[in-house]
């Protein structure tokens, strides 16, 4: 783990050598293209969409040091900073399903609101429970650097 931290630090030190933005975009495009070839291989009953495969591929490439942070982080961080804006068309997409809302709208929105809160709170506290088990039952280290 120490070696990994060290690797991350040296990579940050080389920040001035960040790859040109077109190369960074090229890496993203290549990963997306390969992912779009892999995605249809999954059966219809077990769908795994292109961006999910792409996320895994980029993570594996980073973890195996084939791709360095400086090759992708400038474009990647930029894309992440845009995520709320990129979601606007999805939000406006609801204009096409206004008739669904007319039928059962209020009930659906209430269930979705509750479901969102349930997912957040239940997953967070389940995790806290498992970490508590790790610490108090299995007596394993739970410290992380901030």
């Amino acid at each position: 783990m120490a070696a990994n931290d060290k690797a991350t630090k040296t990579e940050t030190a080389k920040e001035e050598q960040a790859s040109p933005i077109l190369i960074q975009m090229g890496i993203f495009a290549a990963i997306l293209f390969v992912s779009s070839l892999i995605s249809p291989l999954f059966p219809a009953t077990f769908p795994v969409p292109t961006p999910v495969i792409g996320l895994v591929i980029l993570y594996v490439l980073l973890a195996s040091h084939i791709v360095k942070l400086r090759n992708v982080e400038k474009f990647g961080d930029f894309m992440i900073s845009l995520i709320a804006f990129l979601f606007v068309p999805s939000g406006i997409q609801l204009a096409a399903s206004l008739d669904i809302l007319k039928a059962q709208g209020v009930q659906l929105v209430v269930v979705i609101l509750i479901a969102t809160i349930v997912l957040l709170v239940v997953v967070a506290y389940t995790t806290a429970g498992f970490i508590w088990l790790r610490k108090n039952v299995f007596h394993r280290d739970v410290n992380v650097e901030e």
Partner: peptide
């Protein structure tokens, strides 16, 4: 690409 970027 924005989803892929979360690998970073």
């Amino acid at each position: 690409p924005a989803t892929i970027a979360f690998a970073i």
